[in-house]
Design a binder for these strands. Structure first.
Lengths: 344, 344
DNA sequence: TTGAAAGCGCTAACAC
DNA sequence: GTGTTAGCGCTTTCAA
């Protein structure tokens, strides 16, 4: 291979023309002769010229890179969001840098710092559960890096947001249980700090009240990690109550899967004795026994929409135009399976 | 906010010193006075100076960004590999750009092209199933961008590689079935083009021969997508044979889960009538009924190791030192559950 | 239509 | 220990 990469200078010298002329030709500028242009393109092709993006980024002070921070990659919902982000970004000519916070605020700070160093043009973030302070994000905005929040958002932050209607999803899930004739409905909620689980709890509560069912505080249980293990243990404790529930609405699918395990172990029938419904429709939910009913979120679409909004803001920033923030609320849908419907 | 970002020039002017002095101070160079250094740091702090990485990247012609191309993000194995990559890269001060090929060669080409434009310092790639030509990768290498291949590698390509011992994993899985007294062992393989599934088939074959069992060609079935649906259909066809198998070794967990469904539907017992073992130990494998035995791959570790090798090569490239490629073969381990062991 | 000159922000080489 | 100079590769004035 040649000692150094081909530069405009090399082409210019070989053709005996000036560097700006080569630049103009390769960038298809109008003010360049057809003949010169043709010669330049031919030589560039021959020498395998590749533009030095470092120089261009430096000149324009933009990277065409979007930063993405999510709590975890190994997670059905988030990996789909990322997938949507990457596909859309690619179409728009942007690359995607990824960072996972592992649900840690400190790690999130580090991610923002790393990205700031890499000069991202914009950030898409889904907050860690213990992120309450958003100074790091506002700091980015002040440095003219737009921020779009997805799913786990902070209500006090001024930015565009993509969320899904957790409230309505939870409401419909609960309504579905009620329509099956269930009266003592339990709810396994997550930590109430993230906006999402709080909304799910509120949706549950509203449905119970709207349909004039009794709200049993002892049937509300909290899981911090909303994991399968926690779902299992929590359900066992529910089943140890004097009067057990006849249905459980779980704030996540893993907890619901844990709940199913506990219920089966106790020899109870699903859904006849206890119906179970989850939230997020993880891929694994369709293969548990019985297959789990769940509230499906438009994960891929959320990622796509986030990129759309972000790039719009990046362009406004570049043109020094005033920012308009939008909040997109996306609809969930019920996916009904045997854990509530039974066999046929 | 101020009209432009703070530059070294701004600090230099305000302190009445030269720009290089400010640079030296902020970079903790030895040849700078303590007093000056202190003043510079204080003012930089006060003005919220942030170095312009574009300029630095341009100067050094390096981005501290690693590109990663994998077939799919929404995939238990790959999302874990990515997780390992990101965590390790972060420690080493590198950012990670992600791209998914969706198992398409054309898309993979596009990814390489996008990354080349973003001036990545190195690439980690797991090939799409239909990638046979690696010119795009060799082209990167010629442009001094090291490439490390992970899991789905191309044997003719000269580069560092991280693979896991698919052959041995398959051998042990088959050996395990044999140790249970199984005699008519079926194998559901994937497309034999990827190196990985080929090795799994070879491992299976060797175990059968070594233990002097009969190799039944009609018990070898091929699934191109190695999906749950294909596993289900293929197993139904196996169960329609005159003599059905007493065990099935599936090249992936999803096919094994499909197999379990088919076997259960036919009213056969697992593992008494037919034992089932998969490959990759997907998270969902532990929650199917019965829980699936599988061959576990060190996904996270593979990602981590890939970054180690890649950064080593990046540094050698930077120093214009000769490249040394390594191939790391990582060990799998058997995870035994009820689909082969039965209850207790 | 083309060329000459300047500059993006930073750092390395060289002088003093 | 500090300042001066030059240059990374490219694009964008401005002049011709």
């Amino acid at each position: 291979m040649s000692k150094h990469n081909i530069r405009l200078k090399d082409i210019a010298e070989e053709l005996g023309i000036s560097i700006p002329s080569v630049s103009r030709a390769l960038n298809n500028k109008p003010d360049i002769g057809e003949h010169t242009k043709k010669k330049v393109f031919e030589l560039a092709e021959k020498l395998h010229y590749q533009r030095n993006q470092f120089a261009i980024n430096f000149k324009n002070q933009e990277s065409f890179i979007i930063g993405v921070i999510i709590p975890q990659i190994v997670h059905h919902f988030f990996s789909n969001v990322i997938s949507g982000i990457i596909n859309e970004a690619e179409k728009m000519g942007y690359g995607v840098m990824l960072y996972q916070s592992n649900e840690s605020y400190e790690s999130e700070l580090k991610g923002v710092d790393t990205f700031q160093k890499s000069m991202i043009d914009g950030l898409i973030i889904s907050l860690a559960d213990n992120t309450f302070n958003v100074d790091h994000l506002e700091n980015l905005q002040e440095h003219k890096v737009p921020v779009v929040m997805v799913d786990k958002v902070n209500s006090s932050m001024v930015s565009s947001k993509i969320i899904c209607d957790d409230y309505k999803g939870a409401y419909y899930a609960t309504e579905h249980l009620i329509s099956l004739g269930k009266k003592r409905i339990a709810h396994i909620t997550g930590s109430l700090e993230p906006h999402t689980t709080k909304e799910r709890f509120k949706g549950f509560e509203s449905a119970i009240r709207d349909y004039k069912l009794t709200f049993y505080p002892n049937l509300i249980k909290k899981c911090n990690l909303v994991s399968r293990e926690e779902g299992y243990i929590t359900t066992l404790s529910l089943l140890a109550e004097n009067e057990i529930p006849d249905a459980i609405f779980c704030a996540t699918d893993p907890t619901a899967i844990g709940a199913i395990k506990a219920i089966k172990e106790k020899g109870l029938r699903i859904p006849e004795d206890i119906a179970v419904i989850g939230f997020s429709d993880w891929k694994m939910s369709s293969i548990v026994d019985p297959p789990l009913s769940s509230v499906s979120q438009p994960d891929f679409e959320m990622g796509k929409k986030a990129v759309e909004l972000l790039i719009k803001e990046i362009q406004l920033t570049r043109d020094n135009k005033p920012m308009k923030h939008e909040t997109h609320v996306m609809e969930t849908s019920l996916v009904l399976r045997e854990s509530t419907l039974g066999k046929n």
